[in-house]
Every structure is written in structure tokens, then in C-alpha cells.
Amino acid sequence: MAQHEEPSRAPDDDVLGTVSFGFVASSNTDHGMNLNDLGFVFDDGQPETGVGKRAFEQSITAMNQALVGYAQVLAEREEKPSELLTSADTDPAVLASSDQVHEALLGLKTGHLAYTGHPFLEGPLTRKARQDEDPGTYVETDGEPAALQRAGSVSTGPMARELGVSVALNHLLYSGDGRTVRLEVATVHSNGVMLGIECAQLRGERETADFWARRSGGTTAVEIEAHDPLSGPDYTFEPLDLGAARFTQVARHRGELWMPGVLAAQELSCTLYVSYLPNIHGDETTLELGFDLDTAALREATTHIQRFDEES
């Protein structure tokens, strides 16, 4: 392999801009702010009142401005103001100013939670969606999908409006009998941690193509149980089927498992169960692997979370 200073690839201006690539846009109404999980993480479980007070005061100002703006828009349409508030209204100006009120309300709730340690509102703060809504448009959702809320399910993902912070783990949990399991990286969000897991199968030198295809062709699943040995709570998370990239000699199974609420733990002892990852002999014995997550380091990372609706 060429050294960095001596690239083996010739320059070609024609190549510029022709890199094969694609993006996918989606209209997934399930994504949105999760008010049930809004919160800050505090040392020793106590709110930091200085930060919280400032956030609360700023949110009040923002709410006042948003309401004034909304009132101005309504005043411009004051001929039939009551009709503007019905579900049939789709005036972009009304929706935009209404969005600002929603944003401010979210900020108010977050600020209150930071200041007092307790929420002052429960449930979603969602504009009632039209029944005949065009599937090509989006609905602002503040929380989890309605079905999940009714079922009392826990958070299904990170906050939609923030970029998580990567914390490298590089933790090899298992290596042997033609398999490896490792924790690659933890992506920290304000309401939980996305844990990157990679399981690999290595083809044996006497393994036939058919045997290898059968051994590597399944869907590997992972599940994690965790508990805080100091404060006691147990955590359970949704199992995850890993996506696979299969090659001649190696099959890599990767995925990210969502661990909501674990930032509150003082310590986190975890057990990772890996199923359907046959070893060199074709045996599918489930791996049971223990590891600890440094929640203090993960909490520290939350101070660097990027929210796209904040001024930098």
C-alpha cells in the first residue's frame, strides 16, 4: 500500500463530482421531539439551579415573543380567526408562527424541568393532524408515535433535533471460534445512548462455500440487560437485529442499540446476549458477555451535544 505522501491514484479532474452516491428523504411522522424523555442529567440527581433558572427565564422570553408573533399573524387574518384554528387551516404563515409557539413551549418545558427537576406538562404537545392529510407532507410530532404512547412504551430513539456525541469505546468483548464481538462507539444523546455493536464471523480455512453461506447467512440478534449496582435500577432495552455485510471470508453484522435513560445511572453493569452467530463449527450457542459502561464519561459528553435549533 502506498504511503500517504505517495498516493497511488492519479488525479483526474473528470472524477470530481461523479462519486456515486445517493440520499434518501423520508416522510416519517414518527420522528419528533420526545417530551416524555425531555430532561437534563444532574450530578447526584439534583438539578443545577443556576443553569436551570437561566434556561427557564430564557424560555419565558421566547414564549412571549412566539405568542406575540402568532397573535400578529392571526390579526392579519382576523376576519375569521376562529376558523384559522380549525384543523382544516393550512395557511403557511399560520403554521409557521404556530410552529414557533410549539418550539417555545418545548423550550419552556425543558427549562422548567432543568430549573425544578420536575415536568410541568405531560403528554404530547401536538397540533391536531388532519384526517385527510396529504401523505407527502409532515406533521410536527412532539413525542413518540401515538400507538407507543398508548402502550406505555419507553423511548424508541434519540431526540430528533440533536446530533449525538461520539465516544469511542473500541472494546473487544469476545474473540474466538471464528467469531468476534465488540463495542465500537457510543453516541450520546440527551435522552440516552446509542450503542454501536459489531459482530463478525470469520471463515475457517477448511470451511466450504456452502457451509460458510449457511453459517453467515442468518440474522444475528443482540439484547442487553443492564443495572446500576449503586442505585439499583434495572434497565431493559428493545432487542436489535443486526444488519449484515457478507463477504467471502468475513461476515460483519452491525447495528446500534438504543439505551434510553441510562445516563442517570451512577454505574452501569451490562450483559450482552448475542444470538444466531454460529461459530466455526456451526453451533449457535448464545454468547453472554458482560461489560461496564462509564456513565460519568458519557454524561460529560452530553455537554457537547449539538442541537440544530440552537445558536452556536
Partner: peptide, 14 residues
């Protein structure tokens, strides 16, 4: 040297 883009994923909210 133009580097190969080996993965591109997109997601979207409102």
C-alpha cells in the same frame, strides 16, 4: 485525490 464515498445515509424530520 478524490476519496471514495463508501456510505451515505439520509434521514429527515420536519
Amino acid at each position: 485525490v478524490v476519496l471514495d464515498c463508501v456510505l451515505g445515509q439520509g434521514d429527515e424530520t420536519r
